[in-house]
Write a protein that binds this DNA or RNA. Structure first.
Length: 486
DNA sequence: TTTTGAGTTGTTCGA
DNA sequence: GTCGAACAACTCAAA
C-alpha cells in the first residue's frame, strides 16, 4: 500500500458522475490530484477553436467548483501533456496517473507520449474507457472490418450495447497534503475580448455537468415524444441541444442512453407503446450517429483532412474567397442559409437541419471545398467535435462513408418553406426580413416590388440579392459530379 | 466465394 | 394539388 497521490488527468470528460478513471482513483484510497492540461501543442491544427474555448472556460469553472465542494482542488496547467503531467507527478510525489481515453488521431499520439514519458519515470498509467458507448476495437463486421454503413452499425450497437446504471459522483475528494502550483484559469484567455463576440452565448447555454443533466431531463420531459418529426424544425425548440455538453464530456453517452431508456420505460408502462414511443428510438439513433463518426475517425485518421472516397480529390472546387466570406457572415441572399450562419455566430450553435442546408449551399451551390466549411464550424461551434464535424461535412459533400448521393442538392428556398413554414426562424435571425409576408420570407427576390417596399426591404441594400441562381448552380454542381465519375 | 438486398436527412418532372 | 419515377451505379454487409 502506498498513499502517494494519483494524478487524475481531465480531458474532454469534464464531469464527476459516470467517470471510470475518477471512480478508480477514489477506490484506490489515495489522495487525488485532479488536473486539466491546456495542450494546444499536441492538438496542432485541431486545438479547440474560439467558441469551444469559451465553453471550455465556463465548463472548467463549473468542474473546479464541484471538485472544491468535495474537498479537492482542480489544478490548471498548460503545455505538452506528457511533460506537464510528468512534472506535476514529480511536484506532488504521485506514482500513478489515471485518465479517460480519447479517440482523435492527435489525442491517441498524445496518450502514447504521456504513457511513454510517465513509465520512464516509474509512474503507473491507467487508461479508462472514454466518451463512447463502446470501444471502437469491439465493434466490427463479421469480416472483422470497421462498419462503413450506418444502418448495420446501428443494428449492431442496438443489439450488443447493454445500458448500465451510470456511476455516481463521489461525495468527497481527498487532495494531497500540500497543494501543487496551478495557473489561474483567467490567465488562459479562453474568453474573447475586443470584440466580445460571445456576448450572447451565456443567454443560451449553461456549461457544466449540472447544466447538461438539466438539459437532458428537460428534453426527455418535454420534447422527446415528438422528436421524430419536430427535430427537423429549427423554429421549434425540439432538439436536445446536448451536443456541446457531450463534446466536453459533461455528460456521457452512457448516461444519456440510460436515462432515455428509463424515461421510455416509464412512459410506456401502463399503456401500450404509443406513437410517442418512436421519438426515443430516433433520439438514440442520433446518439449512435455520433458514435459512428467517432469510430470512423478512429479507423480512418485522415477523415478531417482528406476525402474518404479518394476520387473526390479530383473534384473541381472553386477558389471563391468572397463567396466564402459572404457565406460565413450570413449574406448569401438565401434567408434560411443566412439565418443559420447568423445563429451560429450569435450562439455558437446551429440547428442540425440548417447545418445540412448551409453545408449543401457552400459545397454544391458555391462549389467551395468542404474543408473550408469544416474549418469555419470548427472555430465557431461550441460543440465542435472532430469526428462529428468531419464526418458530417463529408457526408454532405458525398465524399464520406455512407454519404449523400451526388444528386441530393438541397434547394434552400424549398427547405426553408418546408421546415420553417411560418418563417419564425428566419425572422428571428434575419430581422431585416421580418416584415415580409410568410409567402415571401424564404424567397424575397420573388416578391413584387411594392411588397418589398412596404416591408422595408431593398434587395442589394437592406438585404443581399441571392448570390447565385440556385437553378443554375444546381446544374453546374451536377455537371461537376458527372465529370468526377470519368 | 458468390450472391443478394439494402443503403438518414432531396428535387424535379410529368402524368 | 398529388404522386411516383428518375436521378447511377456502386459498395457494403451478411447469408
Amino acid at each position: 500500500m502506498t498513499d502517494a497521490p494519483v494524478v487524475l488527468w481531465f480531458r474532454n470528460d469534464l464531469r464527476l458522475a459516470d467517470h471510470r478513471a475518477l471512480k478508480a482513483a477514489v477506490a484506490s484510497g489515495r489522495p487525488i490530484v485532479p488536473v486539466f492540461v491546456l495542450d494546444d501543442i499536441s492538438a496542432g491544427p485541431w486545438a479547440a477553436g474560439g467558441a469551444a474555448r469559451w465553453w471550455l472556460h465556463h465548463s472548467l469553472e463549473a468542474l473546479a467548483a464541484s471538485i472544491e465542494e468535495r474537498g479537492g482542488r482542480l489544478v490548471f496547467r498548460r503545455g505538452e501533456a506528457a511533460q506537464v503531467l510528468a512534472s506535476l507527478a514529480e511536484d506532488v510525489g504521485a506514482t500513478a496517473c489515471y485518465f479517460s481515453r480519447r479517440y482523435e488521431p492527435w489525442a491517441i499520439r498524445q496518450e502514447k507520449a504521456v504513457k511513454d514519458r510517465a513509465e520512464k519515470g516509474g509512474i503507473e498509467v491507467r487508461r479508462f474507457a472514454g466518451s463512447l458507448l463502446m470501444e471502437p476495437e469491439r465493434v466490427a463486421t463479421q469480416a472483422g472490418d470497421p462498419y462503413k454503413v450506418y444502418t448495420p452499425f446501428w443494428r449492431q450497437i442496438a443489439s450488443v450495447y447493454k445500458p448500465e446504471r451510470p456511476l455516481k459522483a463521489p461525495e468527497t475528494l481527498n487532495g494531497p497534503k500540500s497543494q501543487p502550483r496551478s495557473d489561474r484559469l483567467e490567465d488562459w484567455s479562453l474568453l474573447p475580448r475586443r470584440p466580445d463576440w460571445a456576448r450572447g452565448f451565456a443567454d443560451v447555454w449553461t456549461p457544466g455537468e449540472a447544466g447538461a443533466v438539466e438539459r437532458l431531463d428537460d428534453f426527455l420531459e418535454n420534447s422527446v415524444a415528438g422528436y421524430t418529426e419536430e427535430r427537423n424544425r429549427p423554429d421549434l425548440a425540439s432538439t436536445s441541444r446536448l451536443s456541446p455538453h457531450l463534446a466536453h464530456g459533461e455528460i456521457s453517452p452512457g448516461q444519456i442512453w440510460w436515462r432515455t431508456a428509463s424515461a421510455r420505460a416509464a412512459a410506456s408502462s401502463g399503456s401500450m407503446a404509443g406513437p410517442g414511443d418512436k421519438g426515443y428510438e430516433t433520439f438514440l439513433k442520433e446518439l449512435v450517429w455520433r458514435e459512428f463518426s467517432a469510430h470512423l475517425l478512429f479507423h480512418f485518421p485522415t477523415f478531417p483532412d482528406e476525402p474518404f472516397r479518394a476520387e473526390f480529390s479530383r473534384f473541381p472546387w472553386s477558389e471563391d474567397e468572397a463567396g466564402l466570406v459572404a457565406w460565413q457572415r450570413g449574406n448569401t441572399g438565401f434567408p434560411i442559409v443566412d439565418a443559420g450562419l447568423r445563429e451560429l455566430w450569435a450562439t455558437g450553435w446551429m440547428h442540425n437541419r440548417v447545418r445540412m442546408i448551409v453545408a449543401s449551399f457552400l459545397i454544391k451551390d458555391l462549389l467551395i471545398p468542404w474543408q473550408s466549411g469544416e474549418a469555419w464550424f470548427w472555430d465557431t461551434l461550441v460543440d465542435a467535435d472532430l469526428a462529428n464535424n468531419s464526418a458530417s461535412w463529408q457526408w454532405v459533400a458525398g465524399s464520406g462513408a455512407d454519404a449523400a448521393p451526388y444528386f441530393r442538392i438541397f434547394n434552400p428556398t424549398t427547405q426553408g418553406q418546408k421546415f420553417d413554414p411560418d418563417g419564425v426562424y428566419v425572422r428571428q435571425w434575419v430581422p431585416e426580413l421580418a416584415q415580409l409576408p410568410d409567402k415571401f420570407v424564404h424567397d424575397p427576390s420573388a416578391a413584387p416590388p411594392e411588397t418589398l417596399a412596404s416591408a422595408g426591404v431593398e434587395l442589394g441594400a437592406t438585404y443581399p440579392a441571392p448570390m447565385v441562381d440556385h437553378k443554375v448552380a444546381r446544374v453546374r454542381a451536377l455537371d461537376a459530379f458527372e465529370r468526377l465519375k470519368k
